[in-house]
């Protein structure tokens, strides 16, 4: 019944009631998502784009964001660079939230020594310094963005699981969860719907978006540190900054750098805003 009510009017109402930071960040996130979704439709050949006769051109009508040291369009590369982190980031975030939430729920529900030992293993993984571990993995195996995404997903599962486990444990003592049990709801339904979906969805959404932004961040960092990220000539925001940091012109590195900062900040604010909106219902 409540689902029917979600209409255009409600969306506008929510929009008006939200803070400026949420409005701005959601615009940015929306733009990034749009870029990510239309990306497979854009054909781009990084080799054909090289044109040494138009090196380091300032932003103009034909090249909105100028060109880099090899005469490639910065705007087009920026757009195509979204592809590097978009799907890997989404997949990593999704699986981190899914597996982390699931494991946390299992630990919290089982309790006892089984739950405690799973929790201990997870905490052990959680103590690994993420960045160093990622660099290590990338030196051992041939680096690819998919590998980075997979490892980030793995590294975030423990922290998500721990939060969810604590939540499940504390909720187990709540009157309404006991009431659900007493009314004969299936335990699986209570865990998956009432606890994971209703109570933890805010938290899981926030974590999903956080992991997504982390993949972008780590891709940038690794590209800058060495050739661990997406390899030239294929564009990614990270290697765009890394390649053109010695460039004479400012735009080839400044524009992707600003894009990275704005996107990460917007993602975090957006995740926070969504989670807060959901939590407000409780009060």
């Amino acid at each position: 019944m409540s689902k029917i009510k979600v209409s255009k009017i409600k969306v506008i109402k929510i929009w008006r009631a939200s803070s400026l930071s949420f409005q701005l960040s959601s615009l940015v996130v929306f733009a990034v998502f749009l870029c990510g979704l239309v990306n497979p439709l854009i054909s781009y050949d990084p080799v054909l784009d090289v044109d040494l006769s138009r090196r380091d051109l300032a932003p103009s009508l034909s090249f909105v964001m100028g060109t880099d040291g090899q005469g490639r369009s910065v705007g087009l590369r920026l757009l195509k660079g979204v592809e590097a982190f978009f799907f890997p980031g989404l997949i990593a975030g999704f699986f981190a939230a899914l597996i982390g939430g699931g494991l946390g729920a299992i630990c919290g529900y089982l309790g006892g020594w089984v739950g405690r030992s799973i929790a201990a293993i997870l905490e052990l993984i959680d103590t690994l310094p993420r960045m160093v571990f990622l660099v290590l993995i990338c030196t051992i195996y041939p680096p690819s963005i998919l590998l980075i995404a997979m490892i980030s997903c793995l590294l975030f599962i423990p922290s998500i699981a721990t939060v969810v486990r604590r939540k499940v444990e504390s909720l187990g003592a709540e009157d309404y969860i006991l009431a659900h049990v007493a009314h004969g709801f299936h335990p699986l339904k209570i865990i998956s719907y009432h606890i994971l979906w209703l109570q933890c969805r805010a938290l899981l959404t926030r974590q999903l978006i956080f992991v997504f932004s982390y993949v972008l961040f780590i891709e940038t960092a690794l590209s800058y540190l060495g050739d661990y990220g997406v390899q030239e000539p294929y564009p990614s925001w990270g290697n765009m900054v890394a390649q053109s940091r010695i460039s004479v012109a400012a735009w080839p590195w400044a524009i992707p750098a600003v894009a990275i900062i704005v996107t990460i900040a917007a993602l975090l604010a957006f995740g926070d805003g969504i989670a807060r909106r959901d939590e407000e219902v409780k009060r």
């Binding site: 309404y176 009431a179 007493a182 004969g184 709801f185 209703l198």
Partner: peptide, 26 residues
């Protein structure tokens, strides 16, 4: 098989015994 149909309970604090994130109808 007994929870709900065999025996069920109403608790002390009505606010805390309803799920805060679901409508009453649900």
């Amino acid at each position: 098989s007994l929870w709900g149909r065999g025996a069920t309970a109403i608790f002390q604090n009505p606010r805390r015994s309803l799920d805060p994130l679901m409508t009453v109808g649900q």
